[in-house]
Nucleic acid binder design. Structure first.
Lengths: 206, 206
DNA sequence: GTCTATATGCTGATAGAC
DNA sequence: GTCTATCAGCATATAGAC
């Protein structure tokens, strides 16, 4: 809830919170203006259209998410250590931004236009391709040394992504149906991180 | 695209398709009427409000999903066989209804009212509680016999659910970014089913 | 049961005063 | 840069004719 000095940034910040909470369709520029403390006209003065405002936020968030993924491929001395480190980085990033997975998923699933947008802006990026190549090489090396089951690198990524992302997707449900306090939610996240790490490592043994 | 004889059912069927594709907020009763081949007034004549129409569909879908979960707890002679059977049942059900996970997730996440509705209508149901108790007993038995790692039953369910659900959540993305044909999509699903089964079973070894 | 017509409200976006 | 005023469009919902 950092109060920005300029109204332009304040609008954007409020918009992000609302888009995260409610999605694009259920958020109006009137609501954004009201929560930012200005009139609806001003939102359009700065960002022209609602779609344009959303795009800036969406782009920024996807970029941030991909940066986190890029950062996770650093420590490669032992494979188990790498898996543990990567999952740790994902969990830390998502704990600071728990709504991110749902936000990105929702918009990508419900709007084909957004998928086109993603493909044209990111899939071609070298960061992304390099990440996959490095990961692929690492996995093959471990497999040839007999330290890893013969699983496709893609499936390893899917396994990690599914379980990590899912934890945060269902957080509102967990919070509402099973948890009572914030402390319990934190414990849930920490516990899932530990269990996912264990399961993935054990699941990849030859 | 089964054409129903009564307009009442036809409206409901069309509404379900549209809610699945676009979610509640982005679907209008006018659009439902148009695709059903009647006027918008008729939609309200039968279902009074849009919210009411949605609730009926949502309730029905959640019920169907829980029934699938209930059915998965039948074959309990060997634990590996049980895991394989359960994942098989989930995948078959979701392949026939691939949009279900996103539909349910979206409404539960973006609308707290829906979570309250879920809690009051389902969590108290004996089917659900019995499922968990039976599963819990099965896991503890296997663990005491030394055939299973000491993982909480809840975490096993999370692992299976994450990976199964995630497969279908990202299906539109896979379809758009990586697959070319329907055949490739089917292969992806079949492949993931196999890999998830393998990973879960291997991940649970002591 | 199905229609037309209409009420009422909210939406995104723009024009123009200050 | 921020406001007020206003537009056209579409939303949900209802009333009433047939």
């Amino acid at each position: 809830m950092t109060t920005n000095d300029t109204m332009e940034l304040r609008i954007r910040e409020v918009a992000q919170q609302l888009f995260f909470r409610q999605g694009y369709a259920s958020t109006s520029t009137t609501q954004i203006a009201h929560e930012a403390g200005c009139t609806q006209a001003l939102v359009h003065y700065y960002y022209r259209t609602k779609e344009n405002l959303f795009r800036q936020i969406f782009l920024e968030q996807v970029e941030a998410a991909l940066n986190v993924i890029g950062r996770s491929l650093c420590d490669t001395d032992s494979f188990e250590g790498f898996i543990e480190g990567a999952i740790g980085i994902y969990f830390d990033a998502l704990k600071a931004n728990p709504r991110l997975p749902y936000f990105v998923l929702e918009e990508l699933v419900s709007n084909p236009e957004r998928r086109r947008y993603l493909r044209e802006n990111f899939v071609k990026k070298p960061t992304y391709i390099m990440f996959y190549m490095q990961f692929d090489a690492l996995v093959r090396r471990e497999q040839q040394a007999g330290r890893l089951a013969h699983v496709e690198p893609f499936d390893i990524l899917m396994s990690i992504a599914s379980q990590t992302v899912f934890t945060f997707l269902v957080l509102p449900l967990y919070q509402d149906l099973l948890a009572r306090t914030d402390e319990q939610v934190n414990e849930f996240i920490a516990h899932r991180k530990q269990e996912i790490t264990r399961m993935v490592i054990q699941g990849l043994k030859p």
